[in-house]
């Protein structure tokens, strides 16, 4: 759901570590709301987060976060950002409450405010009873929730969450996602980097896919999951779907059965032919709309489109099987 001006932009951003080019000419505009950042391992997601935080400097290109240029205005920006790192990072030797109080004080909260806010966010994430225990003794799920509390205690405008559900059981994952939604409901924009596609599907409104340091896809969920070429449609048929498949093929339109539905490959200007086939087959339909892939298929397809080598490989396999690429 792209709204208003973007909360962060990257223009032609490149970053190289020794021989490895983590980002190459990345162009990106991140809208408000909950944005899922997807990409395979080593795609450049964590590098992007570090550049957004001003922890690292791009070799070239411009990064603007919340209206500030990075890393020049890093301190101002970090005061408005909450960051939950991917690593199991905690301040050593402190209990849960002290962890959150220190995080708040580092962001500029006075001690009294920090203490009050720390209790509040620890209540929010369900660590009320464990707040005086050493954080190192927490379970993984508790440590994840503690890090979320540390990230939001100062009331950030933008929250960067790097793999917040990694290693959590289904119940813990559901709670973490609900917390994220709750926080987003107060107008906090969230950038969620994850490998768990169902998490993105559950709460994200906008998706950014990074592959090999470049933008693979940026858009809303419907666009992400739109069919392989954008011209595949699903027709829900009440009965006798095979008659519709036959009628469509007679019109020269590719069609096949998918359980009780019919998948049709047609351009928009062929819509009339499709309706004619429906009339000719004399079947009742309950749905006619663009095909939405599942997240996994869409993810792989967007990576494939971005990756010429992989696409060549796929095409070669298809040719060997005697199919048109």
């Amino acid at each position: 759901m792209a709204q208003d001006s973007p909360i962060a932009t990257a223009s032609q951003v490149s970053r190289t570590f020794d021989e490895v080019q983590a980002l190459r000419g990345l162009d990106l505009a991140i809208p408000k709301g909950i944005v899922g950042v997807l990409g395979p391992n080593g795609a450049g997601k964590s590098t992007l987060f570090r550049l957004l935080l001003g922890l690292d400097q791009a070799d070239q290109g411009d990064i603007v976060v919340l209206g500030h240029r990075m890393p020049d205005d890093a301190l101002q920006v970090r005061a408005k950002i909450g960051y939950m790192p991917e690593d199991d990072s905690l301040f050593p030797g402190l209990d849960g409450l002290q962890q959150v109080v220190l995080a708040a004080q580092l962001c500029g909260l006075a001690r009294v405010d920090a203490l009050s806010r720390a209790h509040q966010v620890l209540d929010l994430v369900g660590l009320t009873d464990a707040r005086y225990r050493l954080a190192a003794g927490y379970s993984l799920g508790m440590r994840q929730r503690l890090r979320l509390a540390m990230a939001v205690v100062h009331g950030p405008e933008l929250l960067l969450l790097d793999e917040p559900t990694a290693g959590l059981d289904p119940d813990g994952r559901a709670q973490m996602l609900a917390l994220i939604q709750e926080i987003a409901g107060h107008g906090v924009s969230i950038l969620l980097s994850t490998h768990v596609l169902s998490d993105v599907e559950a709460i994200c409104q906008y998706i950014v896919l990074i592959s090999r340091g470049q933008l693979g896809f940026a858009g809303d969920m419907a666009r992400f999951r739109a069919g392989s070429n954008g011209h595949t449609w699903r027709i829900g048929v009440l009965a006798q779907a095979d008659r519709l498949v036959e009628a469509l093929r007679e019109q020269g339109i590719a069609a096949q059965l998918d359980r009780s539905d019919v998948l049709v490959e047609a351009d928009v200007d062929q819509a009339t032919l499709v309706w004619q086939a429906i009339a000719k087959a004399d079947v009742a339909i309950h749905h006619f709309g663009p095909l939405e892939e599942d997240m996994g298929s869409a993810f792989v397809r967007h990576l494939r489109l971005d990756d010429p080598l992989r696409r060549q490989g796929q095409d070669a396999v298809a040719a060997a099987l005697g199919e048109a690429p």
């Binding site: 005061a79 960051y83 690593d87 990072s89 301040f91 050593p92």
Partner: peptide, 11 residues
């Protein structure tokens, strides 16, 4: 402990 990241990702 990863605490340096926690310190430096704040202002």
């Amino acid at each position: 402990a990863g605490a340096l990241l926690l310190y430096f990702s704040r202002p």
